[in-house]
Amino acid sequence: MTAAHPVPIPAILLAGSRPGPDPLLTGSGVSTKALLPIAGQPMLVHVVAALRASPLVGPITILAQASAELAAEPGLAGFADLHFADSGQGISASLAAALPEGDAPVLVTTADNVLLTPAMIAAFLTGAEDSDVAVAMVERRVLLARYPESKRTWLKFRGGWWSGANLFRLRGRRVLPLLDFWSRIERDRKKGLKIVAAFGPWLLIGALLRLFTIQQGVARAGRRFGLKAKVVPMAEGEACIDADKPADIELIERILAARR
C-alpha cells in the first residue's frame, strides 16, 4: 500500500509596497518593488517560479495594492493557477482578508524572497506540521558561515541569534486574533525587542536574560492566543536573505549566478 500524496497547500504571496518612498526603486523605471528586476527578471517572477515548481503548493494568490499591474507582467504568463487580489491597509489586515474559510493551512511568503527554492518549501512544510502558526527562521551561524557579509535583523535567545526567513504556515482563520494583534505592532517589525515586549513582560524578561530558546519563546507567544506556534529552523542560510537593500540584491544576483 502506497502513502497518500499530500494535498497541495494554497499560497498567499505578499507583493505590496510599504508606505513611503523605496530607495531601491530610485532610477529603476518600475513603480513597485515586486517588479524590480533581479538577474534579468522581476523578483516576483522568481518567487512564483519557486512556488509553482513545488508539488506541495497549490493555487497562488498574489496580494498587492495595484494587483492588476502585477497581473499584466509578461513573465507570469506561463504560470497556472495564479490569482490576484488588491490588498488593504497593512500586511496583517490584507492577509486576514485573503485567508480561506475554515482552518485549512495556507503558506505565506513575500515577493522579495527571491532565493526561495522548492527544497526550502519542502523542508519548511515538513517542519511546520501539527502547528497552527509556523515561522521559518535562520540561526546566525548558519548564515554567516557562508555569507559573512550579509546584514540581517537578529533576535537573541538562549542558544542562538535568529532572523526571519519570510515563510509562514497559518491554520486558516483560527489565526485571526494573532493577525489582529500583529496589525498593531507590525510597524516595529525590524525592532526585535519591541516585538518581543509586545507579547508581555515575562517574554521580554526571558529574552533579555536568555531564559529560554526562541522555540520556547514562540510557543509561549502562541499560547497567549490559544495557538500552537513553532519555529522551523532552516538549514540553508539563503532562506533569510531577502531583497531589502542594494547590497542584498548584489548578493542575491551572485547566488543566482552560482546556482545556474
Rank of each mutant, 00 (worst) to 15 (best):
A3M: 15
A4C: 11
H5K: 12
I9G: 01
A11Q: 04
L13V: 02
L14S: 01
A15G: 06
P19F: 02
L24W: 08
S28Y: 07
V30F: 04
V30K: 08
S31R: 15
I38N: 12
M43S: 12
V45Q: 10
V47A: 06
V47P: 12
V48L: 03
A53F: 04
S54I: 03
P55Q: 07
G58A: 09
P59A: 14
I62Q: 00
A64W: 01
A64M: 04
Q65S: 13
S67G: 01
A68Y: 01
A71I: 09
G75S: 05
G75V: 10
G75N: 04
L76Q: 03
A77H: 13
A77W: 06
L82P: 02
H83I: 02
D86V: 02
D86I: 02
S87H: 09
S87W: 00
Q89R: 13
I91G: 01
S92H: 01
A93V: 06
A97M: 02
D103Q: 13
V106G: 07
L107N: 07
L107K: 05
N113W: 00
L115W: 05
L115R: 09
T117Q: 10
P118E: 11
M120A: 06
M120V: 00
T126R: 14
T126A: 15
V133D: 09
R141V: 15
L143D: 08
Y147S: 07
Y147A: 05
P148S: 11
P148R: 11
S150P: 01
R152S: 08
R152A: 06
T153V: 03
T153I: 01
K156G: 10
F157R: 13
F157W: 15
R158L: 14
G159F: 07
G160F: 02
G160N: 07
A165L: 01
L167V: 09
F168W: 14
R169H: 04
S183V: 08
G192S: 14
K194V: 10
V196T: 14
V196K: 00
A197G: 11
P201R: 13
L203W: 04
G206L: 03
A207L: 07
A207T: 15
I214S: 06
V218H: 03
R220F: 13
R223P: 08
G226C: 10
G226Y: 03
K228T: 15
K228C: 12
V231E: 07
V232I: 14
V232D: 12
P233V: 01
M234C: 08
A235H: 11
G237R: 05
A239Y: 00
A239C: 02
C240T: 09
D242K: 01
D242G: 03
A247R: 15
I249A: 04
L251M: 13
L251A: 07
L251T: 11
I252H: 13
R254F: 06
I255C: 08
A258S: 14
R260H: 12
